[in-house]
Design a binder for these strands. Structure first.
Lengths: 143, 143
DNA sequence: CACGTTTGATAAGTATGTCAAGCATGCGGG
DNA sequence: CCCGCATGCTTGACATACTTATCAAACGTG
């Protein structure tokens, strides 16, 4: 197995002529596909094997690996599972998550807000309420 | 403005009896939608405002918030950006960051109390009040 | 060489995400 | 009263993700 099979990449297609899709994600998609393929081959899996593990068709996996499509969360998750990777690694590879630490918002100045937002023990409604209270407090003070 | 007018949720449809690895989507989608809506309202944004920020149509945002659709990565990312959240928080909310290690939650859990205690912008009374609210929330959530 | 098997790639069809336009409702002013 | 302006919700058309069925090449067997 694993012979130099028929690998053909139809040249780097960065067609962003029409403005429909967000420009420039082809690079990330390619990176993601390469990464997935590498991991798959590392695990000595064929497309079909992985397909049966992920319940995603081999054909689509092939297309994803070659950067022809942007897989959805479901598929991404399945793939990560089959390859024994965390979804975060996959997303990170595609550049969709800013990084593991990643605090795009105000992390240092608004530590409390951030903590509330990230707290997994709160339901959405509770979050709203708590943040509302907190903000009213802070707004009332000198700020 | 901001009066909750025509609101209708078409019953909770949780029909996922098959043994697929990704079973139980509707619940997650609903959670995600609720979270997004909560955050949006927190930021005092209307659907249309957010739509213009995210370059996603208001209609679709509405549907996503109500759990009628699963947004793609692009859209998710845009939303996170508009709400000044990291994509990971969104994904975490929906429970998509399973991963093998996946200790996103436990690491942050408990950080909220700490953040509140340390927050220099709160007066002692406010601190007590906020902690009280937070604790009541967490206590009610069957830890 | 015929044969079956395994591999990755392609074709055409189906399901689902996404948008632009229109609907319903509430609010303030003539 | 009606009217315009705000909001959120629904419809129907299109684009994209995804599937099932199939192909051509490489690897065996005898």
């Amino acid at each position: 197995m694993m012979t130099a099979m028929c690998a053909a990449r139809p040249a780097d297609d960065d067609a962003t002529a029409d403005g429909s899709p967000a420009a420039g994600w082809s690079a990330q998609i390619n990176a993601l596909g390469d990464f997935i393929r590498a991991q798959r081959q590392l695990a000595n899996l064929s497309l079909r094997e992985m397909a049966s593990m992920t319940s995603v068709s081999n054909a689509y996996l092939s297309q994803v690996e070659r950067g022809l499509h942007q897989p959805s969360l479901k598929v991404l998750h399945s793939i990560a599972d089959a390859l024994q990777l965390s979804t975060e690694q996959l997303l990170g590879q595609a550049g969709w998550v800013t990084g593991t630490g990643a605090a795009t918002a105000s992390a240092e100045s608004g530590g409390t807000e951030d903590a509330i937002r990230k707290d997994p023990r709160l339901s959405p409604e509770q979050r709203i309420a708590l943040l509302g209270v907190y903000r009213s407090f802070v707004a009332g003070a000198t700020d």
